[in-house]
Amino acid sequence: MDTETENRFIALETKLAFMDDFVNKLQQEVVKQQKMIEILREENKILSSRIMDLSENIEIPNRKPPHY
């Protein structure tokens, strides 16, 4: 194998190693974000439930706000 071909292989292997590392880091970030999305969905469900409970129990008067 001549040196030019060998240098090209080395350059390709280097790029592949960097891309592999990048993909692994990206995958880890996606997993963290997915966990956060699930937590936020659960919190949203709980808050929606509380709001519904409160709105059923409290009568909200139909009047103009004080700034009118």
Rank of each mutant, 00 (worst) to 15 (best):
I58S: 00
Q33A: 07
M1G: 11
Q28H: 14
M52Y: 03
E42H: 13
I46W: 08
K35S: 10
N7V: 05
I46F: 12
I51S: 08
Q33G: 01
E59N: 11
E13D: 06
Q27M: 10
E56K: 10
F22A: 15
I58C: 00
E56A: 07
Q27L: 10
K64V: 13
Q28V: 10
R8V: 03
F9E: 08
I10S: 01
I39G: 04
N7T: 05
M1F: 05
I10F: 02
F9M: 09
M19F: 06
F18H: 13
S48P: 02
H67G: 00
K35Q: 12
L40V: 09
V30P: 01
L40H: 14
N44P: 01
Q33F: 04
K45M: 09
N62T: 11
D20E: 15
L54D: 06
N44F: 06
K25S: 13
A17T: 07
L47W: 05
I60A: 07
P65V: 07
S55H: 05
H67A: 04
E56S: 05
L54A: 12
V31N: 09
K32N: 13
E59C: 07
L26G: 07
I10E: 01
I39K: 15
L16T: 05
T3Q: 13
Q27N: 12
D2L: 02
L16M: 07
K45C: 07
M52H: 11
E4D: 06
D53W: 01
M19Y: 09
S48K: 15
Y68R: 05
F22E: 13
I60Q: 11
V31Q: 10
E42C: 12
P66I: 02
F9H: 04
H67M: 02
Q33K: 09
A11H: 04
E13C: 03
D20M: 09
L16D: 04
R41D: 14
I58G: 00
T14R: 03
K35F: 10
I51Q: 09
F22L: 13
S55W: 00
N44Q: 13
N62G: 09
E38M: 14
Q27P: 00
V30A: 09
M52G: 05
Q27A: 14
E42W: 05
D2K: 01
N44S: 14
S48W: 03
K32H: 08
S48T: 15
N7D: 04
N7A: 12
R41E: 15
R63G: 02
E43T: 12
I39E: 15
E13L: 08
P61E: 04
D2Y: 01
M36W: 05
M1P: 03
D2W: 00
I39T: 13
I39N: 12
P61G: 02
F22D: 09
K35V: 08
N44M: 08
E29S: 11
R63D: 06
T3I: 11
S55C: 10
S48G: 15
S55M: 11
K35G: 05
